[in-house]
Computed example of a mutant assay.
Amino acid sequence: MLRYGLIGLGSMGRHHARNIRALDGVELVGVADPFGDKFGVAGDLPVFEDFRALIDLDLDAAVVAVPTAQHAQVAIALAEAGINTLVEKPLASTLDEGEAMVEAFESRNLVGAVGYVERCSPALMELRKRIQEGQLGKIYQIVTHRQSPFPARIADVGVVKDLATHDIDLTAWVAGSAYDTLFAQTASQAGRDYEDLVSVSGKLENGVIVNHLVNWLSPFKERTTTVLGENGALVAETVMSDLTFHENGQALLEWDHLSSFRGVSEGASIKYAIQKREPLAVEHENFRNAILGTGTDHVTMREALKTMKVIQTILDSAGSGVALQLND
Results as ranks from 00 to 15, higher is better:
173 W>T: 02
173 W>L: 03
175 A>E: 00
175 A>L: 00
176 G>H: 03
176 G>V: 05
180 D>K: 05
184 A>G: 03
186 T>P: 05
188 S>K: 09
189 Q>N: 14
193 D>R: 05
197 L>C: 14
198 V>G: 11
198 V>I: 11
199 S>K: 14
203 K>Y: 08
203 K>M: 06
209 I>F: 10
211 N>C: 15
211 N>L: 14
214 V>D: 01
218 S>G: 12
218 S>Y: 14
219 P>K: 09
222 E>H: 10
222 E>P: 13
226 T>K: 11
231 N>I: 10
233 A>M: 12
234 L>N: 09
234 L>R: 08
236 A>Y: 01
237 E>Q: 00
239 V>C: 04
239 V>F: 06
240 M>W: 07
241 S>I: 08
244 T>F: 08
249 G>Q: 05
251 A>S: 03
251 A>V: 07
252 L>I: 10
254 E>N: 15
255 W>P: 07
257 H>S: 15
260 S>W: 06
260 S>N: 12
263 G>Y: 08
264 V>A: 13
265 S>E: 01
268 A>V: 05
269 S>K: 13
270 I>E: 11
270 I>W: 14
273 A>Q: 10
274 I>V: 06
275 Q>F: 11
276 K>W: 09
276 K>P: 15
276 K>C: 09
279 P>R: 03
280 L>S: 01
281 A>M: 00
285 E>T: 14
291 I>C: 08
291 I>H: 02
291 I>L: 04
293 G>L: 01
294 T>Q: 06
295 G>S: 03
299 V>F: 11
299 V>W: 05
300 T>P: 01
305 L>Q: 09
308 M>L: 13
313 T>S: 01
